[in-house]
């Protein structure tokens, strides 16, 4: 360590004042630098965390969106809209139509099946 002042020196009061002033200013400056560093550090960390949070949320939304729609069977064209027809009857109608048309069921696209009995009356 470099010795700045000779050993056992007795100072005058103005010299003491000057030393005290320099020392106090040094402490304030160092702690100010640390304060600035902490602000910078928290800004950077929060920025990174917000970005990560945003990307995680986007991922979650996408996952949620795909989870909302039921998984489609291979080759399926989606759901059939049923009007006043129960599922069992609708499945029977689709099977009969496929049989009549001599076409495999997964190659047909049913948009909706509607009970027209009431209308006929």
């Amino acid at each position: 360590m470099i010795e700045l002042i000779a050993a056992n020196t007795k100072f005058t009061v103005p010299q003491g004042l000057l030393l005290a002033l320099v020392g106090f200013l040094l402490v304030i400056c160092v702690l100010f630098v640390l304060m600035g560093f902490i602000y910078l550090l928290s800004f950077i960390v929060r920025l990174i965390e917000n970005k990560r949070k945003a990307s995680t949320e986007t991922g979650k939304t996408e996952e949620k969106g795909s989870a909302g729609a039921p998984a489609l069977a291979p080759g399926s064209s989606g759901a059939v809209k049923l009007n006043n027809v129960d599922e069992r009857t609708a499945a029977m109608i689709m099977a009969i139509v496929a049989d009549e048309m001599q076409t495999p069921l997964n190659e047909l696209k049913f948009i909706s099946i509607k009970d027209v009995t009431e209308e006929a009356k």
Partner: peptide
């Protein structure tokens, strides 16, 4: 609350006031 560092710095005032007082009663620097 990084502003608390300023309070920590200000509270070192006693060190430097005591330094002046100790010098004024003719203690050596050490």
């Amino acid at each position: 609350n990084p502003k608390s560092l300023i309070l920590g710095a200000a509270a070192q005032l006693g060190i430097y006031m005591a330094l002046i007082l100790a010098i004024s009663v003719r203690f050596t620097g050490e």
